[in-house]
Write a protein that binds this DNA or RNA. Structure first.
Length: 570
RNA sequence: UGAGGGUUGGUGCAGCGGCAGCACGACGGGUUCUGACCCCGUUAACCAAGGUUCGAAUCCUUGACCCUCAGCCA
C-alpha cells in the first residue's frame, strides 16, 4: 500500500511503489556495488512546452527512486535546441515539479551549462578520428543513410584529415559557416543495422538566440551527444527514459565508451497513454494554438497546470503514478483510474456543501412566512475534526430538478407527488402540489414539512427512501458552474486520422444561475469541496471575482441512479 | 527483406522453476441522513506450438502479432 495518506511528507511514504523492473535493476546494482550503492537519477525535460501527466509518471519514477534509495534526483533542462525553448517553460516546469511535491535540492542544471565541456569532448572525438565535419546537404545525408534494409554509404567528406576537421569545426563554432552548410558527425558505420549508428550528427549550426547562452554559440549539440555526456558529468547512475530511445542506447554507450568517461546506465520504460486524451506535446500545442481549449491550463487539458486548475491534488497524481506501475509494454491506462484517485483523496479532505445546479423552486406551505432558522450540517463525515457549520432554512427553497419526477419509474426514490423525502440536515417534506407553466413545464413544487423531523430524523422512527440536497432561496448565492467531460469522444484519439475530428463537442458545459449555500460566498480560489450527491468541485483560480465564485467540476460522484436510468432506457 | 523491444483477466501492474496475485472496472449483497464513502462476495488472464524438467507464466526452440528507428527534433 502507498503511504501517501500522510499528505506531503514524501520521506514517510513507505517503500511505497510496487516492485518493477527498474527497481530490480537498481537493487541488483546496489547489491553488487556497481555504483558504490549510489542512486542518482534525473528528470530531463526540454523546456519547450508544459508538463503533462505523462511527465508526472517520469517525475514520480525518478524522484521516487531517489527518495526510496536515499539518492538524489537532478532536474536538468535539456536545452540544446534554441529555436524551440523559452524561459517561460523552464519556470512553469519548476513550478509544476515543486507542486507535485518534489525537491531537486541544489541539483538544478541546464545542458547549456555544459556547452564548453561538450565542445571539448567533440574536439577529442575528432582528434581520435572518431568524428568528422560533413559538408553534404541535409538531403544528401538522408540519401546516403540508406534504408531500414539497405546499408548506407560513406560521405565523400568522411575521410577528411583530423587537422581539416579541427579547423572546420572551429570555423563552425566561430560562425564562419552558414546554417546547413555542414554538421559534425560521429564516424561509426554507415552499414550499421541500427540506423542510429550510421554516422549520427553530433553538432549542427543554428544561428539562433539561446534563452540562456544568448549569442555565445552558433553550434548546438544534438540530443544523443549532449544527453549521455550530461548524465556522465553529473554522475547519474541510472538514466531512465522512454521506450523510443531504445535504439539510441547503443549510441549512448558508444559515445561514453569511446571517450572513456564515467558511464551511467540507460534504462527505458513505456510512456503513459491515457484513454480519452492525447499526451503528445505536438498535439497539445495544436489544441492550444488552434483555440480548441482556452490555454495550457484549461481544466480539460492533461497538463499538470490543467489538472491543478481542474482541482486535482498533487497527492492524487502521485498516487496515480504509483498505481499505474512501470513496465516496458505499451499500454493505455483507463481514465477511470485517474478519477478514482482524486475521488479517494478528496473524499478524505473535501468539505461537504450543498449546491443546486439546476434549481427547482419548492415552497413549504406550512412553514411560517417570515421565519428562518439555522440547522447544523457536518463538514465531512469522514473526518470529525473538520467540524460543522450552520445552514439557513426557510419557507422557499431550491432543490435539484433531477430530484423530482411527476411520474417516477419503479426505482426512482426521490421526490414525486405525495411522496415524503428528507431534506438533508433539515426536515422530512411531502410533495402536495405540482405547479406548471403554460407549456406544461414544472416550475414549482408545493410541499408540507413535518416539524417533528427537525434535524432530519423522525421521532416515530419512520424512514424515507431518499435524502435530497437543497438551499434556502433567500440565503443562497448565485454561482457559475462548469461541468467538464473528456476532451475527446473516443478512447484513443491519437489513433484517429485527425485527432481534432474526434474532439468532444460537449466537453464543457457552463451553468449559470446555480444556487450554492452562503458559506461558499468567500471561498478562496482553488478551494475544493464536495457538492453533496453531485461531485467534487473547486473554485476556479482564474475566473473568480470576490463574492461571485466560479466552480469547476473536478469529477462526479459515482452514481448508481444514472446506471439504473440508462438500463431502463435500453 | 534490417535492427532493437514487447505480448499475464475488460484495463493497469505483480509473480522470475513449486497453489497465478493486487488495484481499477463490472456484477451481486450489506450498511447509510450523500443512490457517495465503507464492508462482504462474484467475475475474469499466462499469444501459439514444440522441447527441457518430478514440476514451466517463468528456461530453450520455432512461429504469430504489436511497438520503435531512415530529423541538421528530443
Amino acid at each position: 500500500m502507498s503511504g501517501s495518506s500522510t499528505g506531503n511528507n514524501l520521506e514517510n511514504r513507505i517503500p511505497s511503489a510496487p516492485p518493477n523492473f527498474i527497481r530490480h535493476i537498481i537493487e541488483e546494482d546496489t547489491r553488487t556495488g556497481k555504483y558504490d550503492g549510489r542512486v542518482i537519477t534525473r528528470f530531463p525535460p526540454e523546456p519547450n512546452g508544459y508538463l503533462h501527466i505523462g511527465h508526472a509518471k517520469s517525475i514520480c519514477l525518478n524522484f521516487g527512486l531517489s527518495i526510496d534509495y536515499h539518492g538524489d534526483c537532478h532536474l536538468r533542462f535539456d536545452d540544446t535546441n534554441p529555436e524551440k525553448e523559452e524561459v517561460e517553460y523552464v519556470e512553469s516546469i519548476k513550478a509544476d515539479v515543486r507542486w507535485l511535491g518534489f525537491d531537486w535540492k541544489d541539483h538544478r542544471y541546464f545542458t547549456s551549462d555544459y556547452f564548453d565541456r561538450l565542445y571539448d569532448y567533440a574536439v577529442r572525438l575528432i582528434r581520435m578520428g572518431k568524428a568528422y565535419v560533413d559538408s553534404l546537404s541535409a538531403e544528401d545525408i538522408r540519401r546516403y543513410r540508406g534504408t531500414l534494409t539497405e546499408p548506407g554509404k560513406d560521405s565523400p567528406f568522411r575521410n577528411r584529415s583530423v587537422d581539416e576537421n579541427l579547423a572546420l569545426f572551429q570555423k563552425m563554432k566561430e560562425g564562419g559557416l552558414d546554417e546547413g552548410e555542414c554538421v559534425l558527425r560521429a564516424k561509426i558505420d554507415m552499414a550499421a543495422p541500427n540506423m542510429v549508428m550510421r554516422d549520427p550528427a553530433l553538432y549542427r549550426i543554428r544561428k539562433a538566440h539561446h534563452h540562456r547562452t544568448g549569442d555565445k554559440w552558433c553550434i548546438y549539440p544534438m540530443y544523443d551527444f549532449a544527453h549521455c555526456l550530461s548524465d556522465s558529468i553529473e554522475g547519474i547512475t541510472h538514466s531512465i527514459c522512454t521506450l523510443e530511445f531504445e535504439n539510441n542506447r547503443e549510441l549512448y554507450d558508444w559515445i561514453l565508451d569511446t571517450l572513456k568517461v564515467y558511464h551511467p546506465r540507460q534504462i527505458e520504460f513505456a510512456r503513459l497513454n491515457l484513454s480519452y486524451t492525447v499526451l503528445s506535446k505536438r498535439k497539445l500545442i495544436e489544441l492550444v494554438t488552434g483555440g480548441h481549449v482556452t490555454g495550457w491550463d484549461d481544466p480539460r487539458m492533461p497538463t499538470l497546470s490543467g489538472l491543478r486548475r481542474r482541482g486535482y491534488t498533487p497527492e492524487s497524481i502521485r498516487n496515480f503514478c504509483d498505481r499505474i506501475g512501470v513496465a516496458k509494454r505499451d499500454s493505455m491506462v483507463d481514465l477511470g483510474l485517474l478519477e478514482y484517485v482524486i475521488r479517494e483523496d478528496l473524499n478524505k479532505k473535501a468539505h461537504r456543501v450543498m449546491a443546486v445546479l439546476n434549481p427547482l423552486r419548492v415552497v413549504i406551505e406550512n412553514y411560517p412566512e417570515d421565519q428562518a432558522e439555522m440547522l447544523t450540517a457536518v463538514n465531512n463525515p469522514e473526518d470529525p475534526d473538520m467540524g460543522a457549520r450552520q445552514l439557513p432554512f426557510s419557507r422557499v427553497l431550491y432543490i435539484e430538478r433531477d430530484d423530482f419526477m411527476e411520474n417516477p419509474p419503479k426505482k426512482f426514490f426521490r421526490l414525486s407527488p405525495g411522496r415524503e423525502v428528507r431534506l438533508r440536515y433539515a426536515y422530512f417534506i411531502t410533495c402536495t402540489e405540482v405547479i406548471k407553466n403554460e407549456t406544461g413545464e414544472v416550475v414549482e413544487l408545493r410541499c408540507s414539512y413535518d416539524p417533528a423531523t427537525r434535524g432530519g430524523d423522525a421521532p416515530d422512527g419512520r424512514k424515507v427512501k431518499a435524502t435530497l440536497h437543497w438551499v434556502s432561496a433567500a440565503h443562497a448565492i448565485d454561482a457559475q458552474v462548469r461541468l467538464y467531460e473528456t476532451l475527446f469522444s473516443v478512447e484513443n484519439p491519437a489513433a484517429a486520422e485527425d485527432f481534432k475530428a474526434v474532439l468532444n463537442a460537449g466537453s464543457v458545459q457552463t451553468l449559470t444561475g446555480c444556487k450554492v449555500e452562503p458559506s461558499l460566498a468567500d471561498a478562496p480560489p482553488g478551494f475544493s469541496c464536495q457538492f453533496e450527491r453531485l461531485g467534487y468541485f473547486c473554485v476556479d483560480i482564474r475566473d473568480c471575482v470576490p463574492g461571485r465564485p466560479v466552480f469547476n467540476r473536478v469529477v462526479t460522484l459515482k452514481d448508481m441512479w444514472v446506471k439504473i436510468k440508462d438500463q431502463h432506457q435500453k
